[in-house]
Amino acid sequence: MSSAKRKSEARAGSRSHGRDPESSRREILEAAAEIFMEYGYAATSLDHVAERLGATKGRVYHYFPSKADLFLGIHQGAMETLIATVAPLLDGPGTAAERLHAMAMAHARMLMTRSPEQKVAVGKLERHLLRGATARHQHTLQAIVRLRDDYEQLFAEVLSEGMREGDFAVQPPRLATKPVLGALNWLTVWYQPRRGESSEDIEIIARMIADFVVKGLRKGEPLP
């Protein structure tokens, strides 16, 4: 598609339906996450996203000029949402173990209720985009990596507190975040919403996984 035609479609999309820009952007990202999950990165196009929305391609181009922009937008949005949800729990009441449990439940709940977006974000984004990425995309990639580091640090801090309190086995806190988040993120592999599933059902699953995570860190007998 020529640059002129793309700009023309983008202008048309910007005028479409008088939508609020943020809600329109959010709607596009949600549709794109579903498409990426169904078709994979290579087979997805902006045409697919526009078709899923029942919208013009110009509406998508207005916010996301390329598939890479969409893909990165999903990753960045997912990480920002996780941080905004989990970070306040780090300074909440209770012991470090209790706060870790609350953080793990919040993470698990998010993965189950925002499944397409989080499934895309948990994937290995670098394999699609690091090679041949534009300077603009590299800048966004670096921002996403920083968000991931910041998110891991939240868990490292509460793990470190739990070790000082004597509840958790002493180990490098940052390294300990890997199996913790790995156990939580595995939800995106096996979890599928069931017909008639209630919010109580989701809470039960989230609690079971959080229990597993916290118990696995408890201080036990030393290894031989």
Rank of each mutant, 00 (worst) to 15 (best):
M103V: 04
M103W: 00
M103K: 11
A104G: 09
A104H: 11
A104C: 15
M105S: 12
A106W: 08
A106N: 12
A106R: 04
H107L: 14
H107D: 10
A108L: 10
A108Q: 11
A108S: 12
M110H: 13
L111S: 10
L111D: 03
L111H: 02
L111T: 04
M112W: 10
M112G: 13
M112S: 13
M112T: 12
T113K: 15
T113H: 13
R114Q: 06
R114D: 13
S115V: 11
S115G: 08
S115Y: 13
P116T: 12
P116A: 08
P116S: 05
P116E: 12
P116K: 07
P116Q: 08
E117S: 10
E117Y: 01
E117A: 00
E117M: 10
Q118N: 14
Q118P: 06
Q118V: 02
K119Q: 14
A121K: 03
V122Y: 03
G123V: 02
G123F: 00
K124T: 08
K124Q: 07
L125Y: 15
L125I: 10
L125M: 12
E126C: 06
E126W: 10
R127D: 00
R127V: 03
H128L: 08
L129K: 05
L130Y: 15
L130V: 14
R131E: 12
R131G: 13
G132I: 10
G132H: 05
A133P: 04
A133V: 03
A133D: 00
A133I: 03
T134P: 05
T134C: 02
A135N: 09
A135V: 12
R136H: 14
R136T: 06
R136G: 10
H137R: 06
H137T: 04
H137E: 08
H137S: 13
H139N: 06
H139G: 06
H139I: 02
H139A: 13
T140V: 15
T140D: 08
L141D: 07
L141R: 00
L141S: 03
L141H: 02
L141Y: 06
Q142V: 04
Q142E: 03
Q142F: 08
Q142L: 15
A143W: 01
A143I: 01
A143L: 09
A143D: 06
I144P: 02
I144N: 05
